[in-house]
Design a protein around this nucleic acid. Structure first.
Length: 621
DNA sequence: CACCTGGTGC
């Protein structure tokens, strides 16, 4: 048996840690503790790092104890590792205590604490510390700058970030040669919507990193500049930089948001071929979500079942997706299954399952899950969960109960909660309560056009034309405009966007021709007539029937029918930024029967799957 | 042997 000293133990621990095996590194430390060999400062900092990576506070605290007992805790390397370990384990308070009582602090201690504050508590505190360290005469380095810039972005203060940027230039700090600093700047500008500024820094960066590529690509995507995002992605792919899961999952997330199925499918194929692709859970999750948001539940389900590792996000994607498709039972089944698999639902998962219950009218189940959330030790109900419950009760027609629920809430109800109740009032034609709730909503925000539209719809449904007219006048007087209705459809990988009343499309005449013909056929089949009440969704004064005919979802459908003729694919997917109107809903139902075609319409709230004259929302949305 | 920037579900 060869002699083993502290150096050999430590070297081995370092080796495992570098190979990404923090667990073995830690167990080596406890094994060493049972021998006669005593750890030195390097051993201690190594296993503190391992605890931090694993996020195991218990073992970290134990090691902290060992450090204190062996008088190593005052050594800077060890002290800094302790700070880092506590902040990685989510115990900023402990990190702070160690930091404040440290005898010897170096720039690394300050840096570690700045990161701790940013991740664990607040960017404000991180920024304060940044100021304080300079007051104490400490000179910030690249680590300081990148972490502090992140803190600026967390508190949403571009101004502070720009000041730092200016200071870097003034001091001739070589930030363009340090990828982390330049990357943090790019990300800060991206997150604050200054894409041009971000691009300028990116282009000048000498040492780019995948991180800054990733930030920039997402930045373009977020401002709807998909061509530029794709162009950059292509460049990145052809460059010497190694693609990673971050870039892929962000890009696929964008395809999901825009429901770009063809692009998404192509990227799915790509993720199978690259090492950083589908095997990473986050990438697979983004693909799942993409299929769900494009309406392809079966594809998503298949992929979900064959995924190597599923985390809470994977389950939540599926539950949310099924919920939005109105398949509440499936959502509930998955929620149970995930718990059987030992995956703990978080607050987003609860939101998903509650909203699934709501969309499928499963009131009792929803109430059961809400109370299980109240009893849950990991997460507690937040205002969004309360809103879900109001929606659940309101949709179910239990308006009085919903109102009581709001009044008994432990937090102050926000406008969204009252808006939810208001839409329940509309659904069930309760003008009395609608009036009451409408007053509350308008008092909370009298400049939100959606509030007036909802109220005017309640009055219109009940035939109170005078009240309706009054509201319209108010909207006009205040000069409020509702978000323009917009629908889009993907044909041959190309996106065609239509706005309500859009007359700009080169094929608009032919689109109207097709739509008129379809109206005739649907009318013959199911006796469809325009329901002019829905015209009140539009604040503009147009002939009602005419204005219904130019709803963007109808125009998009018209284009698809024109392009594919009456043959072609048996499933047509349309996307809309607002909720689909009742008239269009009836029309599409009829169309699905007449053309023997499935229409999947994703609106602002949920999916509608129209098949053989029926819709998956059961006319209840 | 310590400290840094980007992503997926609401």
């Amino acid at each position: 048996m060869p002699q083993r000293n502290v150096v050999s133990w430590t070297a081995l621990m370092c080796g495992y840690l570098q190979n990404g095996d923090a667990k073995t590194s830690l167990s080596l430390f406890s094994k060493m503790g049972r021998s006669t060999v005593k750890p030195n400062e390097f051993t201690l900092s190594t296993c503190l790092k391992a605890s931090g990576i694993l996020g195991i506070a218990e073992s970290g605290m134990q090691i902290h104890g060992v450090c204190a007992k062996s008088d190593f805790d005052w050594v800077p390397v060890v002290g800094n590792s302790i700070i880092d370990m506590y902040s990685k384990c989510g115990k900023v308070g402990d990190a702070e205590r160690v930091f404040n009582t440290m005898a010897v602090r170096n720039v690394i201690s300050w840096n570690a604490m700045i990161v701790g504050y940013t991740n664990g508590r607040s960017g404000e505190e991180a920024l304060n510390l940044f100021r304080k360290m300079q007051e104490k005469g400490e000179v910030p380095d690249g680590y300081t700058y990148s972490s502090t810039l992140k803190a600026c972005s967390c508190v949403g203060s571009v101004g502070k970030g720009m000041q730092i940027h200016a200071a870097l230039i003034r001091q001739r700090f070589p930030y363009l040669a340090q990828s982390a600093v330049a990357g943090a700047l790019v990300d800060l500008y991206v997150k604050s919507g200054r894409i041009t500024e971000a691009r300028r820094v990116f282009d000048r960066t000498e040492k780019k990193s995948v991180t800054s590529w990733s930030s920039l690509i997402l930045g373009y995507a977020q401002e709807d500049n998909l061509p530029e995002a794709m162009h950059l992605f292509k460049q990145l792919r052809e460059s010497r930089y190694k693609l990673d899961g971050f870039v892929l999952s962000s890009l696929i997330g964008v395809f999901a948001d825009f429901s770009l199925l063809e692009q998404g499918k192509q990227m799915h194929a790509y993720t199978i071929k690259v090492p950083c692709g589908l095997s990473e859970t986050s990438v697979a999750n983004s693909v799942l979500d993409m299929y769900m948001k494009c309406g392809l539940t079966d594809q998503a389900e298949a992929l979900f079942r064959e995924m190597a590792a599923r985390n809470v996000v994977s389950w939540t994607v599926m539950i949310t997706g099924y919920g939005k498709h109105g398949i509440g039972n499936k959502a509930i089944q998955l929620f149970k299954e995930m718990q059987e698999n030992g995956v703990e639902p978080d607050s987003v998962t609860y939101l998903a399952v509650l909203s699934a219950c709501s969309h499928s009218g499963l009131i009792n189940e929803g109430q059961r899950y809400f109370s299980s959330l109240c009893d849950n030790s990991h997460s507690k109900p937040q205002i969004e969960h309360y809103a879900c419950m109001v929606d659940l009760l309101g949709r179910g027609g239990r308006l009085k109960e919903a109102k009581d629920f709001i009044e008994k809430m432990p937090m102050k109800p926000n406008m969204g909660i009252w808006q939810t109740l208001l839409s329940g009032c509309r659904m069930h034609g309760d003008v009395e309560m609608g009036k009451e709730v409408g007053d509350i909503v308008l008092s909370l925000d009298g400049n939100n056009p959606a509030n007036y539209v909802m109220m005017s719809n309640i009055y219109a449904d009940a035939g109170y034309w005078n009240e309706c007219e009054k509201l319209r006048d108010t909207v006009k007087r205040k000069g409020l405009r509702k978000e323009a209705g917009r629908s889009w459809v993907e044909i041959d990988k190309e996106i065609h966007v239509f706005y309500n009343g859009d007359g700009m499309h080169p094929l608009i005449e032919k689109i109207h021709q097709v739509l008129k013909e379809m109206e005739k056929r649907v009318k013959e089949e199911i006796g469809y007539v325009h329901n002019v009440n829905f015209a009140l969704h539009d604040v503009e004064e147009e002939s009602k029937v005419e204005s219904l005919r130019v709803h963007s979802e109808k125009l998009a459908i018209g284009l698809v029918l024109l392009r594919r003729g009456l043959k072609g694919e048996r499933m047509i997917r349309i996307f809309k930024n607002l909720r689909v109107c009742g008239d269009c809903h009836t029309f599409i139902k009829g169309l699905s029967k007449v053309l023997k075609t499935v229409f999947v319409v994703r609106d602002a709230n949920r999916f509608h799957r129209f098949e053989n004259g029926l819709c998956s929302c059961r006319d209840y949305w």
